[in-house]
Write a protein that binds this DNA or RNA. Sequence first.
DNA 1: CTATACGAAATGTCTGACATTTACCGCAAG
DNA 2: CTTGCGGTAAATGTCAGACATTTCGTATAG
Lengths: 255, 255
Amino acid sequence: MTTLSQLPLPPDAGGAQALATTLAHAILSGKWASGETFPRERDLCEHFSASRNRVRNALAELSGSGLIDRTAGRGTVVRDIEDWHLLDPQMSEWMAGLEAPHPQLVREVFAFRLSAEPFVSELAALAATGQDLARIESALVGMCESAADPARREEHAEHDVAFHDAIYRASHNLVWRQMGLLLRPSIVALIQHSHHQAGSLDDSLDRHRQVFDAIRLRDPEAARDATERVLARTAADLGVENGARQLQRPASLPL
Amino acid sequence: MTTLSQLPLPPDAGGAQALATTLAHAILSGKWASGETFPRERDLCEHFSASRNRVRNALAELSGSGLIDRTAGRGTVVRDIEDWHLLDPQMSEWMAGLEAPHPQLVREVFAFRLSAEPFVSELAALAATGQDLARIESALVGMCESAADPARREEHAEHDVAFHDAIYRASHNLVWRQMGLLLRPSIVALIQHSHHQAGSLDDSLDRHRQVFDAIRLRDPEAARDATERVLARTAADLGVENGARQLQRPASLPL
DNA sequence: CTATACGAAATGTCTGACATTTACCGCAAG
DNA sequence: CTTGCGGTAAATGTCAGACATTTCGTATAG
């Protein structure tokens, strides 16, 4: 699979970050297998008609996200997917911008959400402030308003992301909060792949509202159950295997 | 708190990465408040007698981890702790290398472990392979062997990290697996701050062994309970407020 | 008092050269 | 035939200087 530098993508006019995005998308699309040697700086410079500086800065970003490993003398090799820094916000951005989402990554991220998000909702129900509730409600309203019009799917997706992210924020823990950034690629993939029949959408909105109500009423168990139902609906829309096994037993109350 | 460039740290002889570490430690130590302007490239070059290239590469790393925000014309400003990329492996490394751990971060990371790790153990009990079990057991043996000698505290800490990391890996989910990297700073802080009386250590080892046994026997509930007991012990050694309280009110900021 | 234009200051980019590390190949001794 | 040594090529890392671009403050004309 030694894809040559000609195949990947035509040149790019933006700054170093744009170049990094182009290269990252190529790697995430699986154009190079793990362990394979990446093109040399010189070739990249020529192919993209960019200065070595821009190329090096772009490669430094990829290296920082664990996509590649560079060592003087040996060259640049693509790292295994297990070494990628999935939690790097930059990575989430790249994944969300991908038109054909990486199937394994979507599965892994969704499996994570399936196991963790009900618990995050529990935390949110315990710790949410008035501001948090306002943020969640605002996102919910946005989802409802943009639900009817099929032309506003992207806007709907943004509100969907905002809804779940607001719940992560409401946990009032910096680590959980950071993880809210994982949502975007997962939800974007959902929007692009599901046909969102009207009935399914109404059902989804109703389940989201139940999550909000449970958090507002400070009922952790109800929040957990409602979140499980939202994710079950999402799993169905995504066509993912039913996560019943994973949903079966999230840790409920502390000792 | 506009700490001048002279105060922070004496020069550094290593590569760009070493310089980044020095600067990151300075920021993590709170030498600059959030929103404050960071020294200019020129000054850093002079102070560390480094080329602008090295300084720029180092600053690029800090920027990639969300510690600083650079914009042409305005300069470099330190970002708020809420914007730091806590899940970036680089960040964990920097935190672990800090001699005086950031108190809030230690609290937040531990609060996260307290809420998430019992659940991870459940997943591990369901998904662990023979290789996973071997890894966990190997770490456990290492902990026991290095427990007696107080001179091998660092080695003991490494085995401790390996033990918990192996459990995250055994969940067989890439996202959870990445999060195992958060353990190192937390455990290093534990080793440095607790006096580890002999009785406490024996108790800790026993609790770790119970976690291993539960996972080996594929008993999720037992694994969860045992992990909660390990973390309760850790909380006691760390001097953190009783874990139950944290589970109900994860972090700071009441309304 | 407002709006525009200029200029200082900071980061971003380009170019060319040199340093350092690594892998590969040939060669000679055992 | 194998082993050990050295040399060369290739790739990344670093340095140095100049220029481009963005931003903000300030002075000035209206």
